[in-house]
């Protein structure tokens, strides 16, 4: 009798080929609900590739990725519902205001109405709701991306260098959001250099071979 399927995310012997080369091979990882997994490793060791693989943007060239024991590629739509991915750039259209971005995001991810406003306030962007994105600074743009992350009802957060360009207060806001998400049983996998994680964060170092 197969042991009870491990809850949350589990990758076994994952391999990733990208740009004609094998970025990583035979990589195992597991993240149970409430976990925070921090990816460490120099540039080019595959942190971003792994995050895109976990998000389902990139198919593993080998190995198996499972969620609650069930292979992820069996129900890609369900996996897309449970993933919120923040990449390097912030997906902002210069001529649209923050509020318009949030409204579109809300429709795209089926976000309940009030969550958007709360998310903007959580990152101190409430006052900037009516401002077109082209006026925002690098830090404000990053916070706009994180606001949409927080608003989305996704169990698995995949963050690629989320603290780039953030000031101390925003890093603090992100840390609180991560803690809240973990407390509610969510999982966070983040590639970052900063120690914003606080307590009980597990680390996976890539390219250590």
């Amino acid at each position: 009798m197969e042991s009870t399927p491990t809850a949350g995310l589990e990758g076994r012997a994952l391999a990733c080929r990208r740009g004609g080369r094998t970025v990583f091979r035979a990589l195992d990882l597991a993240a149970a609900p409430g976990d925070l997994l921090v990816l460490r490793g120099a540039n080019g060791t595959g942190k971003s590739s792994l995050l895109r693989l976990l998000a389902g943007l990139l198919a593993p060239s080998d190995g198996r990725l499972a969620w609650d024991g069930e292979a992820v590629d069996e129900d890609p739509a369900a996996h897309r519902r449970r993933v919120a991915y923040v990449g390097h750039n912030d997906a902002l259209k210069p001529t649209l205001t923050l509020a318009e971005h949030m409204r579109f995001h809300a429709a795209l991810r089926a976000v309940p109405g009030d969550a958007c406003a709360a998310a903007l306030d959580a990152f101190g962007l409430g006052a900037l709701a009516g401002v077109p994105a082209r006026f925002l600074s690098q830090g404000q743009r990053r916070r706009a991306a994180l606001a949409r992350l927080v608003a989305a009802p996704a169990a698995l957060w995949l963050l690629d260098e989320p603290t780039n360009g953030l000031d101390a207060a925003s890093v603090e806001a992100l840390a609180r959001a991560v803690a809240r998400h973990r407390a509610s049983g969510g999982i966070v996998v983040a590639a970052t250099h900063l120690e914003f994680a606080g307590a009980s964060a597990r680390t996976l170092t890539l390219g250590a071979a």
Partner: peptide, 15 residues
């Protein structure tokens, strides 16, 4: 693709 929206579209629950 340039501003990162493509990832969000590909990852959207909608087909």
């Amino acid at each position: 693709a340039d501003d990162g929206s493509l990832d969000q579209l590909v990852l959207a629950p909608a087909p």
